[in-house]
Measured scan of single mutants.
Amino acid sequence: KTYTFRVRIVDEETGEEKEIEVTAKSEEEAKKAAEELKKKYPNLKVELE
């Protein structure tokens, strides 16, 4: 079973919002993916929905 999570990304500089879908095998995995995004884009606000 896989879970699909919507991750909302807000670029703090431009105020631009993007939504991406993360497919993960567990909620834990999705959280890790969101953390990776935060590391990659430090000025983005990442929200897991």
Rank of each mutant, 00 (worst) to 15 (best):
K1T: 08
K1M: 09
K1N: 09
K1R: 09
K1W: 04
T2H: 09
T2G: 09
T2R: 11
T2Y: 13
T2N: 11
T2F: 12
T2Q: 11
Y3L: 08
Y3P: 15
Y3R: 09
Y3A: 04
Y3G: 05
T4Q: 07
T4V: 12
T4A: 05
T4M: 09
F5Q: 02
F5H: 03
F5Y: 10
F5W: 13
F5L: 08
F5D: 01
F5R: 01
F5E: 03
R6L: 13
R6Y: 12
R6M: 14
R6C: 14
R6V: 14
R6W: 12
R6Q: 06
R6P: 02
V7K: 00
V7M: 06
V7E: 00
V7A: 02
V7L: 10
R8S: 05
R8D: 00
R8F: 11
R8Q: 03
R8M: 06
R8A: 03
R8T: 08
I9G: 01
I9L: 13
I9P: 00
I9M: 08
I9N: 00
V10I: 13
V10K: 09
V10S: 05
V10F: 13
V10N: 02
V10P: 02
D11T: 02
D11A: 01
D11R: 01
D11L: 03
D11Y: 03
D11Q: 02
D11P: 00
D11W: 04
E12F: 08
E12A: 09
E12S: 09
E12I: 13
E12K: 08
E13P: 01
E13W: 07
E13N: 11
E13S: 12
E13Y: 07
E13G: 07
E13V: 11
E13A: 12
T14V: 01
T14G: 02
T14E: 01
T14I: 01
T14Y: 01
T14C: 04
G15M: 04
G15L: 04
G15C: 06
G15S: 02
G15K: 03
E16P: 00
E16S: 04
E16T: 07
E16N: 05
E16G: 03
E16I: 08
E16R: 05
E16K: 05
E16H: 06
E17D: 05
E17T: 13
E17W: 15
E17I: 14
E17K: 06
K18Q: 12
K18Y: 15
K18L: 14
K18H: 13
K18E: 08
K18A: 09
K18G: 04
E19T: 15
E19F: 15
E19S: 13
E19Y: 15
I20N: 00
I20Q: 01
I20R: 01
I20G: 00
I20Y: 11
I20C: 14
I20L: 07
I20H: 02
I20F: 12
E21M: 14
E21S: 08
E21F: 15
E21T: 14
E21A: 06
E21N: 06
E21Y: 15
V22P: 00
V22G: 02
V22R: 00
V22M: 07
V22H: 01
V22D: 00
V22W: 06
V22T: 01
V22A: 01
T23V: 12
T23G: 03
T23L: 10
T23P: 04
T23N: 06
T23Y: 14
A24D: 01
A24T: 05
A24H: 03
A24F: 14
A24E: 02
A24C: 14
K25G: 13
K25R: 13
K25N: 14
K25V: 12
K25E: 12
S26I: 00
S26Y: 02
S26V: 01
S26L: 01
S26A: 01
S26E: 02
S26H: 03
E27K: 08
E27L: 15
E27P: 09
E27R: 14
E27Q: 10
E27H: 12
E27M: 13
E27C: 15
E27N: 06
E28M: 08
E28Q: 09
E28T: 06
E28G: 09
E28D: 08
E28K: 09
E28L: 10
E29N: 03
E29H: 04
E29M: 05
E29T: 03
E29P: 00
E29L: 07
E29G: 05
E29F: 03
A30V: 06
A30N: 00
A30E: 00
A30M: 08
A30D: 00
K31T: 08
K31M: 13
K31E: 07
K31G: 05
K31W: 13
K31C: 14
K32Y: 09
K32H: 10
K32G: 06
K32R: 11
K32Q: 12
K32N: 10
K32F: 10
A33K: 14
A33Y: 15
A33P: 00
A33M: 14
A33G: 04
A33H: 10
A34I: 15
A34R: 05
A34F: 15
A34D: 00
A34Y: 15
A34Q: 07
A34H: 07
E35H: 07
E35M: 10
E35F: 09
E35S: 07
E36I: 09
E36H: 08
E36Q: 10
E36G: 06
E36T: 07
E36L: 10
L37W: 08
L37S: 01
L37E: 01
L37Q: 02
L37Y: 08
L37C: 06
L37P: 00
L37D: 00
K38L: 11
K38H: 05
K39G: 06
K39N: 06
K39L: 11
K39E: 06
K40P: 01
K40Y: 07
K40R: 10
K40G: 04
K40F: 07
K40V: 07
K40L: 12
K40T: 06
Y41F: 10
Y41H: 05
Y41T: 03
Y41M: 04
P42H: 04
P42F: 05
P42S: 06
P42Y: 03
P42A: 04
P42I: 04
P42V: 04
P42C: 05
N43T: 09
N43I: 04
N43W: 09
N43Y: 09
N43M: 06
N43A: 06
N43D: 06
L44Y: 10
L44H: 13
L44A: 14
L44P: 02
L44G: 04
K45T: 11
K45G: 04
K45C: 07
K45H: 07
K45D: 04
K45R: 13
K45I: 12
K45F: 10
K45A: 05
K45E: 04
V46I: 13
V46F: 12
V46A: 04
V46T: 03
V46E: 03
V46K: 04
V46G: 04
V46W: 09
E47Y: 15
E47G: 05
E47Q: 10
E47R: 08
E47V: 15
L48D: 03
L48R: 05
L48T: 06
L48F: 13
E49G: 11
E49Y: 04
E49M: 14
E49W: 03
E49C: 14
E49A: 13
